[in-house]
Each structure stands twice: as C-alpha cells, then as structure tokens.
Amino acid sequence: MKFIENIDLYSNNFLFTFRAQRKHPGQFHAHKGMEFIYIYKGTGHIMLDHRMYELRSGTLIIFQPYQLHRIHQDDSAEYIRSYVVFEPSLFESYLASFPSLRSFFYHLWKDQLQNQIFYDIGPDHPLVHLYEELQERKHLVPDHKLTEEYGLFIMRFLCLLRLLWAKHENPDAPSVRSLSQVERMMAWLEEHYNEPFSIDELSKHVHLSPKHISAIFRQKTGGTLTDYLMAIRLNQACLLLKTSSKPVTEIGQEIGFTNTSYFCQFFKKKMAVTPYQYRKQFLELV
C-alpha cells in the first residue's frame, strides 16, 4: 500500500485528468500537490482529517498538499471525475498582482480549513465548465505554452471558488458535528502517532473492546488501524524531510520509529526512495 502518491506532475508541475472513469482502490493516501477534484457521478464516502463525509454526484473537493485522505466508491456505482493536481509554490507568481486572490490561495494552501467539500455543484456550474475548457485548450495549445494555460486555469478557478466559498461559510458547517466512533479512533491515532501504539489505550478512549474497534474500523474504512497509523507517520516524515534540517534518525524517532534502519526500510518500500534521496529530490526542486 502506497500512502504518499508519487504523482508525476511533469515539467509543467501540473497534472490534469478529464472525466476519468476507472475506479481505484480506496486507501489512505496523500498527494505532494494541491488537488481540485469534481465528481460527476459516484456514491460512497470520503475520509479527511479524521472525519467521514458522504460522496455523491456533484461533489467538489479541495485537498491540500500532503493531506491524508481516502475516497471509497461504492462498487455498484459509476465513478466519473475530473481533477487537477499541481505544485502550489510554482504557481503563486501568477497571483502577484492580485493580493486578495493570493490571500485566498494561501488560505487554501496552508491554513486549517473548516470546509473542503462542496455538494450539489451541478454539471452546468462555471467551475465545472473550466475543466471542459481546459480539456479543449490542452489539444489546441503547443506543449511549451501549457504552463501559461494551467496558470490561467488556476486563477479562474480560484475566482469562482472564492465566490462559492463565501456562500458556504456558515455556523452549521460539517466540522461542528460530534465525532463518530471511527472518527474518534482516527483522531486518537493522529494525536498519539509518535508513541508506541497501544490498542488497549485506544479501546479505553473509545470505550470499546480491542477486537471490536479493529472490526469497526475495517468495516467503515476498508483499512486497518495499522494502515492508518503508518500512513500518518509516513505523511509526517515527508513533511519533516521537506521543511526541516533534522537528521533522518531524529525524524524517525519523532514520528514513532525507535529503529532508524527499519524506518529507512519502511520509507523506501512505500516511497521507492530512501529518506535521504527524498530530501535531496525536494531540495533540487527548490
């Protein structure tokens, strides 16, 4: 299971997929870039920041870089979506002359967001039309000019999203509801990921037997408690390798690995490179 998707953003630092239909295995994962995804058809649920949300047709989702999430599609339903994934730091220059829009972009990129999922966005919404227009432009514009097209897409998308955002800012947002049992488990794991895992301590926290919580978690998420815990640790490792100069040994210990050798083996198995190579690759992009 790969927790951090090593999405190829190509030379334009931008990936665009239009009306994809192939289903993918629902697993906890994160992207290196920011993602805007629109669901034309689909049913299921979304797990994001230890919360569970409904997935249905007409859903728009904003994922931040390295934000752990999982989309589970119902087996019997179609799943059609368009999405863009991009490296935000390489497109912020397009917003230099628009301070208000740039501030909104930074908010999406770096702040703790109250709401990232928008429902009932019909196929005729201007935001959805932008995906269709980009698909048409992609086949008309020479490859060496695509970066500009992608930058314009992001600016137009942000302008329309900001209007949508303002309409959905209200005190009844989903984040105020109480946590379900599985969400409480995920929240506990996110709080204690850097400690030796104790299913007994978790069971005390949610007031269920160890056997029961394992069964409930798998039933509701499709994965195991260990899957989620290791996904959190790997996600944190990637962030620390990118944003700090801490030694690899210290990073491993900080995220819950007492053995540096095992940490490096685990990281390479999931990321296809060692922690040292991962940091070197990132520094070469800066």
Results as ranks from 00 to 15, higher is better:
2 K>V: 12
2 K>L: 05
2 K>F: 07
6 N>I: 08
9 L>W: 10
14 F>S: 08
14 F>I: 10
22 R>Q: 14
23 K>P: 09
25 P>S: 15
33 G>I: 02
36 F>Y: 15
37 I>Y: 10
41 K>P: 03
42 G>E: 09
44 G>Y: 02
48 L>Y: 01
49 D>S: 05
54 E>G: 01
55 L>M: 12
60 L>I: 02
61 I>F: 04
64 Q>S: 13
70 R>I: 00
76 S>E: 14
80 I>W: 06
86 F>D: 04
88 P>E: 10
89 S>I: 02
111 D>A: 14
119 Y>Q: 14
121 I>K: 04
121 I>F: 08
123 P>T: 11
123 P>W: 13
126 P>C: 06
129 H>D: 15
137 R>A: 10
141 V>A: 07
142 P>E: 06
144 H>N: 08
145 K>Y: 08
146 L>F: 04
149 E>N: 03
149 E>Y: 09
149 E>K: 04
151 G>F: 02
153 F>L: 07
155 M>Q: 12
155 M>W: 07
160 L>R: 05
160 L>I: 01
162 R>H: 13
163 L>Q: 11
164 L>Y: 01
170 N>G: 10
170 N>P: 00
171 P>H: 05
174 P>G: 06
178 S>R: 15
180 S>P: 04
181 Q>P: 00
182 V>F: 01
183 E>C: 02
186 M>G: 00
192 H>V: 00
197 F>H: 03
197 F>Q: 05
200 D>K: 13
204 K>H: 07
212 H>V: 10
214 S>L: 09
215 A>W: 05
216 I>E: 00
217 F>E: 00
218 R>L: 04
218 R>H: 02
219 Q>M: 12
220 K>V: 13
223 G>I: 01
224 T>N: 04
225 L>Y: 02
226 T>Q: 13
227 D>E: 12
232 I>F: 00
237 A>S: 15
244 S>K: 10
251 I>T: 11
258 T>D: 14
262 Y>V: 12
266 F>W: 11
279 R>K: 13
284 E>Q: 14
